[in-house]
Amino acid sequence: MSNQKVLEIKNVDFFYDDFQALENITMDVEKNKVTALIGPSGCGKSTFLRTINRMNDLIEGARLEGDILFDGESIYQENVDVVNLRKRIGMVFQQPNPFPKSIFENVAYGPKIHGVTDKAELEEIVVESLKGAALYDEVKDRLDTSALSLSGGQQQRLCIARALAVKPEVLLMDEPASALDPVATAKIEDLIEELKDNYSIVIVTHSMQQAARVSDLTGFFLMGELVEYDKTNKIFENPADQRTEDYITGRFG
């Protein structure tokens, strides 16, 4: 039971028009674990993350070959409901991107578009999500003020709360701490540790220390390929591939 797969990525190739950004990626993401993706800039980490909730559909000329199974079912079939897929697989972006609305409305946005209209229920979801993102205590007295008045770190946690509000099963995070200072980063990392109990998390990070600190498994990407994917301590202490070793010891990248 402990190593249940939530995502199975099978021989995925990905193209932006003629440019191949991902090459034959195969990996399993385990349930209730934190999976970190590391690799030099431009190696395809964000592209890979976006294939999982089909955000790449929005990019013109983008094309995918291979398949991704979520809970054992393909997400790239004709009849897949992308709206429902994105509801079940949430995403937090590199730059905090709150809506220019109130804190409350930001978190309530997801539930509202998915049909929750009851005020009390919405309120409960908002409070619960803000608590889940460790932001509630800081904003509980000003839920009606604009989200843009929050600090960068608070905005990012708000974005996490917003993603949690639709009750996803998987949370994709694309360098969620890259725009934050060390204190705010530490908060986000603590949060990831806590969220792991209820969510499966895939996190892209530029910081190897961060990958080592927060993740159970780590995948190393290089020029569109998944070079190595293993338990985090294995990757950092005893990598199988020379290129992984070069990267984590800082010899390139």
Binding site: M55, P100, A163
Partner: peptide, 17 residues
């Protein structure tokens, strides 16, 4: 900014929403 559109889509909103 497109980041707002992406935020919305990533929450499962459709085009019109």
């Amino acid at each position: 900014p497109d980041s707002l559109r992406n935020a919305s889509y990533a929450l499962g909103a459709n085009h019109w929403h």
